[in-house]
Amino acid sequence: MNIFRLTGDLSHLAAIIILLLKIWKSRSCAGISGKSQILFAMVFTTRYLDLLTAYISLYNTSMKIIYIGCSYATVYLIYAKFKATYDGNHDTFRVEFLVVPVGGLSFLVNHDFSPLEILWTFSIYLEAVAILPQLFMISKTGEAETITTHYLFFLGLYRALYLINWVWRFYFEGFFDMIAIVAGVVQTILYCDFFYLYVTKVLKGKKLSLPA
């Protein structure tokens, strides 16, 4: 565990909590893509099946349970409790265009052709693109609430910090996971345009709105 990995995990946790609190406090999930949140729930579910087969550490187990729990809670708030506020008309990204190719790729390119490993690979690939429905929704409506941009910032920052963590682990531990690294790079690149808008607009006190 190095500082980049830890701050990456905490950044991820911050993102998840920010989103949950935003929805809970405002009693509304307006502007949030339920599809992205379902994809993230799928990501955590397929990745953390090893909760049932392996024990790594108390930290590892607790974080996994928190991530899964919060993820399902978010989906529940969007599709059940605050369903009336869900903006389905703008959440029109076709998720099958992500899930099907990602599923195929995880069968073709993985570390080991076993069910658990294929599901882990699927989760890594899916996570890389799971934010696309949310970004698509923002591009469609042309704006995002500031709190939603904080969520996206921490979610993007998490994988960027993991990239530094992997450089660190390569030099100091000889650890190298090509699947995670390539997917992590793709995932981080998808946030770059958003990072730019976040720094140039949101951090200067302006609302994130895109030119019409």
Partner: peptide
Amino acid sequence: TDKTVGHDEL
């Protein structure tokens, strides 16, 4: 090495 040593990351 290109072999993963389990998935200790989250």
